[in-house]
Amino acid sequence: MSAPRFPWEEAMALGLGTLRLAPDIFWRLTLPELAAAARVLQPAGDAAMERSALDRLIERYPD
């Protein structure tokens, strides 16, 4: 069984297309650096709302 191949097509699409990095910059990145740059695209606050925050919203906007 062979090891899975790294998804270079997706990495290049992310780095060169979505993040619009210059090719020389993209190819000098380490994989952890590319992953850190990709995190910018994730919406902030992925965590679920706590019940107390929901209760405050319900109290503030009762309709």
Results as ranks from 00 to 15, higher is better:
1 M>A: 14
1 M>N: 13
1 M>I: 13
2 S>G: 14
3 A>D: 15
4 P>D: 03
4 P>W: 05
4 P>N: 05
5 R>W: 08
6 F>S: 10
6 F>E: 13
7 P>N: 03
8 W>V: 12
9 E>Y: 08
9 E>K: 15
10 E>R: 14
11 A>H: 10
11 A>R: 00
11 A>Q: 10
12 M>A: 15
13 A>I: 11
14 L>A: 00
14 L>C: 06
17 G>L: 02
18 T>A: 14
18 T>L: 13
20 R>S: 15
21 L>E: 12
22 A>E: 15
24 D>G: 12
26 F>M: 05
26 F>Y: 08
27 W>P: 05
28 R>L: 12
28 R>K: 14
28 R>C: 09
29 L>M: 10
30 T>R: 06
31 L>C: 09
31 L>M: 07
34 L>M: 00
34 L>T: 01
35 A>D: 09
35 A>G: 02
35 A>P: 05
39 R>L: 05
39 R>S: 09
39 R>F: 01
40 V>F: 01
41 L>W: 02
41 L>Q: 04
41 L>K: 09
42 Q>R: 12
42 Q>H: 03
43 P>L: 00
44 A>N: 03
45 G>A: 04
48 A>G: 01
48 A>P: 00
48 A>W: 07
49 M>Q: 08
50 E>N: 06
52 S>D: 04
54 L>F: 04
55 D>M: 05
56 R>G: 00
56 R>V: 04
62 P>A: 02
63 D>H: 10
63 D>S: 08
63 D>E: 13
